[in-house]
Simulated assay, not measured.
Amino acid sequence: MHSHDDNTIDSEYLAAMKLQKRSVSAEQFSQFEGYVAEIFTAFGLDLHSPSTEETPRRFIKALYDITEGYDGDPKLVKAFETECHGDSDCRLSQIIQGPIPFYALCEHHALPFYGKVYVGYIANENIIGISKLTRLVRLFSKRFAVQERIGQEIAGLLDVMVHPTGVAVYIEAHHLCMEMRGVREEVPMTRTTVWRGAYHDDPALRSEFFTSCGLPRNG
């Protein structure tokens, strides 16, 4: 076990964070706007009106903002020591945050999927500020993504950050690629879970997690 302070981030943590600022020039943005304008026009949108003439520019800017998770989040660096230190009592103490709303773009069709995330962990030597769990969700959801991977990435980075005894992630989401196209399901809900450490080994902990989250199911 090891801890992180304000001035130290080990290579494993940085690799999991993928902390790298994107660099897109003004010339590139202008070029992309031209491509989008050509596509939208071909698909039937009239760009010669007051309400649509700036649509390609707004679309590219919105897409860039929606995928800002690729830039990382330096505010996730900080972890705190806890008084647990692996004591047996701490195995029974869950730290849970949720529902955390999220919005992401499916990497298969670049259409949105959205829903709620519940994150839980059992502390060992370190904890993080409770708001950092929301930041974790946003870090990985604000990218081109798939639901299953978001859960694995949240659990993986939380594991690297604080080395907990266990991690639980539950996600439920609507996928517009199913609601707007394809099978066109009316009210689909995709649910995924990730269990690590004590949660993987102990069905009672999984059940307690679902109960604490107010979810009508058990592990």
Rank of each mutant, 00 (worst) to 15 (best):
P56N: 01
R184F: 03
F140I: 04
C84E: 01
F80D: 07
P50F: 06
E179W: 04
T55A: 13
G151N: 06
Q28F: 09
L133C: 11
A198H: 05
D6K: 15
G197T: 03
G129R: 04
I130G: 03
G72N: 13
Q31P: 02
A16H: 07
S51Q: 15
D5F: 13
S25H: 08
L76M: 05
V36T: 11
E107T: 06
F29T: 01
L157Q: 15
E125D: 12
I9W: 06
G219L: 14
S93A: 05
A110S: 07
K75E: 14
I154H: 09
S131W: 09
P216R: 08
A62W: 11
D46Q: 07
N7D: 15
E208S: 15
R138D: 08
T55S: 15
P74W: 00
E38V: 09
I96W: 06
K21E: 13
G129Q: 02
I150T: 03
H85Q: 11
I122Q: 13
V146M: 07
A104P: 01
M1P: 01
A155K: 06
G98N: 04
C177M: 09
F113R: 04
E185N: 07
N7Y: 15
E33G: 04
E83I: 04
F40H: 05
K18L: 13
W195M: 10
R181W: 00
I122A: 10
C84T: 00
Q94T: 08
D6Q: 15
R191S: 03
F209R: 01
P112K: 10
R58N: 12
H174S: 02
L76G: 13
P216W: 00
S207I: 02
P164S: 04
D89N: 07
P50R: 05
C177Y: 12
N7L: 15
G44E: 10
L215G: 03
P188E: 10
P112S: 03
E83F: 07
R138Q: 11
E148M: 13
E153R: 12
A110V: 00
I9R: 10
D65Q: 08
S30K: 14
D202H: 11
R143Y: 00
P56E: 01
S49Y: 07
Y35L: 00
R91W: 10
Y64V: 12
Q97M: 10
Y114M: 08
I96A: 08
E186H: 14
D87K: 05
H163Y: 12
H2E: 13
R184W: 13
P56H: 04
V24Q: 14
T211V: 06
Q31R: 11
E208F: 09
C84W: 05
P216C: 05
F113C: 09
E33K: 08
V119T: 06
R135F: 07
L215H: 00
H163L: 01
I96K: 04
V160K: 14
I127E: 09
N124C: 03
K18P: 05
I39Q: 09
E125W: 04
P74D: 08
P74F: 06
I9P: 07
F210L: 03
V24L: 14
A37K: 13
E12C: 08
V77P: 02
